[in-house]
Amino acid sequence: MQQSRAETGTPIPAPAPAAAPAGEPAPTGATEIFQLRGLTCRYGGFTAVRDISLDIQRNEITAIIGPSGCGKSTLLRCLNRMNDLVEGTRVTGEVIYNGEDIYAPHIDPVEVRRRIGMVFQEPNPFPKSIYDNVAFGPKLEGHRSDLDDIVESSLRQAALWDEVKGKLKQSALSLSGGQQQRLCIARALAVEPDVILMDEPASALDPIATLRIEDLMEELKRSYSIVIVTHNMQQAARISDKTAFVTVRVENETDERTGELVEFDDTTRIFTAAADQRTEDYVTGRFG
C-alpha cells in the first residue's frame, strides 16, 4: 500500500469549484488548486499584502518572488492559515482551495494545515529521533501499525532514506542543515498533503544542499503542488513553472509599505518578456 502511495502521490479529487465573484477570471475546473480572489492581509493597522488575485495550478511549481519585505512570506502563510497564529491578523478576500474558501467561517484551520503542508526557511526538526520526526504527523492522524512504512516511503520521497536508514533512532539534530531540511520535507510528506508550501527552503543552505532541494522539488511536483517563496531569482527561473512577482508599494504620506502583485505568468515569460516594466527591472537586477 505504501509503495503505491509513494508512486501515485495524493490524487485528491477536486470538488466542483465555487463560483468566483463577477469580474474575476472564471474558474476553469480541476487544474487550479488555489484561486486567490482579492486577498488582503493586515497585521493590526498595517496592511502586509493587498488585493492579490491569482490562480495556482495543480502539479506545478509556483514561485513567488519579490524584494525583501514585500509580503511574499505573508502571502504564502495565508495559503494554509499559518497567519492565524500571529495576533491581530485579519485576512479578507478569498483563498479558494479545491473549490472551498479556506477562510469561510466553518473551516477548521487544523484541517487546512493537514492538507496544505509547509516547509520553513530555517530547518526546524523536532528535538527527537529522525524516525519520530517523520512519524509525528501520521501519529496525529491515528496511524500506528503502518508507521514504519510511512516513515520509509516519506524519507525515500525526500531523497533522504539512503543517508539515514541505518540511524533512524538518532537525533534529528545530528543531521546537517541540508539533511535537516530534507527531513522537514519528509515530515511534511508523511501526512500526505495535497500542497507543499515552501518559505525560502534553501536560503539557510549551502549551494550543494540547495541543488539537492531543487532536484527534489522537480521530483515532488509530479505528485504534489508546490508553492515556493524565494528571493533567489535564479532559483525561481530554474525550478518554477509559474512565477508571481510581488513588490512593495510605499504610501508617500504614511510611509506604509504594502505588498502588491505586479505580474503573474509563466516563468519563462516573466524572465524573458515581462509585461510590466517593474518586473523586468527586478528580474534583470536593476532593482531590489
Binding site: M82, L85, E111, F120, N124, P125, F126, G137, R187
Partner: peptide, 15 residues
C-alpha cells in the same frame, strides 16, 4: 522552546 517547533507541529496539522 523555539517558536519554530510550534510552527512545525502546527503545519503538520496538530491542534
Amino acid at each position: 522552546v523555539p517558536q519554530s517547533i510550534r510552527n512545525g507541529a502546527l503545519a503538520l496539522g496538530a491542534t
